[in-house]
Structures are given as C-alpha cells and as structure tokens.
C-alpha cells in the first residue's frame, strides 16, 4: 500500500476546516476525516492509520479499506496529498 504526504502549506483547523493557499479552495471535513488528515500530517502510514481507526471505531477492516481508498483518492484529486 502506498503512503501519502500532505502538502506543507495547507491550513487545517481543529474543527475540520481546510484551506489550500495554492488553489484558494476551502473544504470541510467530518471528524473522522479530520483525524485521518491530522495523522497523515504527522507522517503516519496508511497501515498505521488503519490500525488506529479499527481499534477506536466500530467498523470492519474491509469496509474501512474501501472508505479509506475513496477518501485518499479525493484528497489526491483536491491536491491535498500526494504519493510519497
């Protein structure tokens, strides 16, 4: 599984508001998306993030993997992360 790097200049607030100075776009994140993005920012790998979510939340691994894939793809599309 690949790992991802969050672009440096992004501003993410505690409440899940995200602003990208390079594109001028802003986004909102739900709490779990916000948590994942913060973990990515801290340099955690997708596997580490997966483990963390699985231990904290009531969700099975394969559903989570699908959702994570989808979420990461969106982050790539929105130019918020890039593959390391």
């Amino acid at each position: 599984m690949s790992n991802y790097k969050v672009f440096d200049n992004l501003a993410v607030s505690e409440s899940g508001f995200l602003f990208s100075p390079s594109t001028g776009e802003s986004f909102t994140l739900n709490p779990i998306a916000n948590q994942i993005l913060h973990l990515l920012k801290q340099g955690e790998t997708i596997n580490q993030i997966k483990e963390k979510i699985l231990s904290e939340y009531d969700i099975d691994e394969s559903s989570l993997e699908k959702d994570l894939d989808d979420f990461i793809n969106q982050l790539i599309n929105y130019k918020i992360v890039e593959e390391k």
Binding site: L18, F27, L29, A33, Y57, I59, D67, D70, F71, Y78
Partner: peptide, 15 residues
Amino acid sequence: MDKKIYERPVIIKQQ
C-alpha cells in the same frame, strides 16, 4: 470499552 460509532471520512469542497 465500547468503540465509537464509525462514519465514512468525508471531505466537502466549499462552493
């Protein structure tokens, strides 16, 4: 300890 209720991670672009 009970686990937290899960929801899909969502990011929405503000238009």
